[in-house]
Design a protein around this nucleic acid. Structure first.
Lengths: 142, 142
DNA sequence: TATTGTTATACTCTATAACTATA
DNA sequence: TATAGTTATAGAGTATAACAATA
């Protein structure tokens, strides 16, 4: 196994992200929700209610894609739409109790693929990933 | 910006990977090659010639998908097919000189989106990502 | 008969363009 | 007239199933 150096970090990181994203996509979530929908749910849980436009920007998708994702989450009762106080064109998407429960189950489930793999790492390795997660988000947002 | 803890690393990491993968996919490579094709090219450069089956497993895609990717890379002259010494069903995909040149350009190009972003990080942050890249690969392979 | 790779086809995800409602 | 969100449609990317060649 060859080591990654500063020089070739860019293509290596890109490969790793691409491979892991595919691997995570293959790992079907039994809630029937895809990778994107779960990401939105986590964002709503962590950052509170957001408009579709705000969510689209944060998640790096276009508004029409976010409309679809929101519709799917709502149809399964994971989120609800709250009218915007002053602008009737807009609304806030808000996570519901079942939505929060899904995230909790998802985190705790012993057979959830990623949780299981993370549990097999050392505490130090997990720390590295915690730092890296923040960095990856900054990259995505740039 | 709330901190990520051990408890919710799994959903946060999954979100980050999903978002960054989408961001990287949006960032069209001017070679006309997608995220998957570039990943394969890097793998061949790093690990040497591989059969389609080996590549499919490593990249976490199904054999038919890898067939398509290989065909695209070959049609652009980035790889060539080398007959398998003993089994005429198989062959090895091998990176060509133009393929290597593309990877080098890609690493060096200052306007390559990811390279540019990585350059904006501190040396310490890049070190974290170097460690994380290896970890992400281990996760994908597990 | 089992295995490797390819072709045919379909599904998922996301994008661009056109449309509706409201500001 | 501009903006927020949705609907309609199309394009990547990848999967499953059926097929061809070889072991």
């Amino acid at each position: 196994m060859s080591a990654v150096t500063e020089t070739d970090l860019s293509p290596e990181l890109r490969s790793s992200i691409a491979r892991l994203a595919r691997r995570l996509r293959q790992q079907r979530h039994d809630s029937g929700l895809g990778l994107g929908a779960l990401s939105v749910l986590g964002t709503l849980d962590r950052h509170g209610p957001q408009t579709p436009g705000e969510l689209a920007e944060r998640e790096k998708v276009r508004p029409p894609s976010m409309s679809r994702t929101i519709a799917r989450l709502e149809s399964r009762g994971m989120i609800r739409r709250v009218p915007h106080p002053t602008d009737r064109r807009q609304y806030h998407a808000e996570i519901t109790a079942p939505g929060k429960a899904l995230l909790t189950t998802d985190r705790r489930r012993k057979d959830a693929w990623l949780s299981l793999r993370l549990g097999e790492l050392t505490s130090e390795e997990r720390s590295t990933l915690i730092e890296a997660t923040a960095l990856l988000d900054r990259l995505a947002r740039a």
